[in-house]
C-alpha cells in the first residue's frame, strides 16, 4: 500500500477535477477498493472520497427509477417499490456479498468493482489487467472462475457484479457526471471488452463520476428474476447467474430480456436468446431451445467448460421462474 492523500470534495466539479489527476481513485463504500490497495493490486497515492457528493436517494418516476450512485446496496434492497417493480434488481442485490458489506457498499461502486480473477488479485503474478503486457496466467491456469464469453487472449477475467447483470437485462442506463455536465450511457455499453487493453474496463473518462443509475419501467420489468449459482449459500460471487424478464400476453412472450453473469468479461446481455423467445410460447421446451443460443461463441478453458451447460440451465430456470411470477 502506498501512502496517499485524502480529500472529500463537496460537488461534482471538484470531484472531477481531483479525480482526473493521475494516481487517483474515487472511494465510495471502499469495500472493493481498500482490500485491493492493501494488497498492492491497485496503487493510488490520492484518494478522493465522494461520500459528501449529493448522490444518494432512490427516485421513482413514471419512466423508471433513478438510483443515486451512493445508494447503499442494503437501502436499495429494502426499497418496497423497487422490489415490486424491478424484482430482479432486488434479488441480485440480496444475492450479493453479505449484509455487513451491503450496508457499506454503494450501487455505483458495485458496477465498478474489480474482477475476482485469482491472478489479478495476487500482486506477485503476471496479469494484463493489473500490469499491461505481463501476460495472462489464467488462460492456462486456475480458471474455474473465469469467463467463457467475451474474453481475449489477453484477459478472460469475469465481471463480478450481480447487480449489473440484472440491470443490463432491464436496459439500465448509467448517468455520468463530469466538470461540464452529465451524459448517459446504456449499461450495456458502459463496460468494455478486454481485447488487447484489459486494463481499460469502462468508457469512463478520467475524473468522470457515476452519479446515478436509471432503470426504465418496461412491460417486462415486473416479471423479472435473478438466479445465482455458487459454491456456498452466501458471501460469494456468482459462479454463473442469469437474469430474465418477460412481457407475457397470456402464455405468449411479447418480449424477453436475458443476461448472464459469472461467465463473461462484462455484464452479458443475450440478444439472440431474446429474439428466439419473442413471439414464442412461454414453456420449457422453448426456454431450452432459446438458452442453447446463449453459448454461441463461447470459448471455455480447462476448468470452466462446465459453465457452458450450467449457464444454459440457469437461463432456463430464470425464464421458468419469471414465467411463473404472478
Amino acid at each position: 500500500m502506498l501512502p496517499f492523500t485524502y480529500s472529500r470534495p463537496r460537488n461534482i466539479g471538484e470531484a472531477a477535477t481531483a479525480g482526473a489527476q493521475p494516481g487517483t481513485e474515487f472511494i465510495a463504500g471502499g469495500t472493493d477498493l481498500l482490500p485491493l490497495l492493501k494488497e498492492g493490486v491497485r496503487r493510488a497515492n490520492r484518494l478522493v472520497d465522494i461520500n459528501d457528493l449529493p448522490l444518494g436517494g432512490i427516485r421513482h418516476e413514471a419512466a423508471g427509477v433513478r438510483l443515486g450512485a451512493l445508494t447503499r446496496m442494503s437501502d436499495a434492497a429494502d426499497d418496497e417499490r423497487l422490489r415490486r417493480d424491478y424484482p430482479a434488481v432486488v434479488e441480485a442485490l440480496l444475492a450479493g456479498a453479505s449484509p455487513q458489506l451491503r450496508n457499506l457498499a454503494t450501487v455505483g461502486g458495485n458496477l465498478l468493482q474489480h474482477t475476482r480473477c485469482l491472478y489479478f488479485h495476487d500482486a506477485a503474478m503476471p496479469c494484463n489487467k493489473r500490469q499491461p503486457g505481463s501476460g495472462c496466467p489464467a488462460w492456462d491456469g486456475q480458471n474455474r472462475g473465469n469467463a467463457i464469453l467475451g474474453g481475449s487472449r489477453a484477459c478472460i477475467a469475469t465481471h463480478a457484479s450481480d447487480l449489473a447483470v440484472a440491470l443490463v437485462a432491464l436496459e439500465a442506463r448509467v448517468v455520468l457526471g463530469a466538470r461540464h455536465g452529465e451524459r448517459e450511457v446504456p449499461l450495456a455499453d458502459f463496460h468494455r471488452l478486454p481485447g488487447d487493453t484489459p486494463q481499460i474496463e469502462t468508457v469512463l473518462e478520467p475524473g468522470e463520476v457515476i452519479t446515478a443509475i436509471f432503470v426504465p419501467a418496461a412491460p417486462y420489468s415486473r416479471r423479472s428474476t435473478y438466479v445465482k449459482l455458487r459454491d456456498r449459500a452466501s458471501f460469494e460471487w456468482a459462479l454463473t447467474s442469469a437474469a430474465a424478464a418477460l412481457d407475457l400476453a397470456g402464455d405468449t412472450i411479447r418480449q424477453a430480456r436475458v443476461a448472464v453473469g459469472g461467465v463473461a468479461t462484462k455484464p452479458w446481455r443475450l440478444p439472440k436468446v431474446e429474439e428466439a423467445l419473442a413471439g414464442a410460447r412461454a414453456d420449457r421446451s422453448i426456454f431450452h431451445a432459446a438458452a442453447e443460443l446463449a453459448a454461441q461463441g463461447a470459448e471455455p478453458r480447462q476448468f470452466n467448460a462446465f459453465k457452458v451447460e450450467l449457464m444454459k440451465r440457469a437461463i432456463v430456470r430464470a425464464l421458468a421462474d419469471a414465467g411463473s411470477l404472478a
Partner: peptide, 29 residues
C-alpha cells in the same frame, strides 16, 4: 463442499489464498 487450495503447478503456489476465494462455510450453509 467448498474447501480446497487451488494450486498452480507453473508457479508452485496456491492461487486462492484469501478468505474470499478459499471458501469455508458461512452461516447460510
Amino acid at each position: 463442499l467448498t474447501e480446497r487450495g487451488q494450486w498452480d503447478d507453473r508457479f508452485g503456489k496456491i492461487m486462492n489464498a484469501s478468505l474470499a476465494d478459499y471458501l469455508v462455510p458461512v452461516n447460510a450453509d
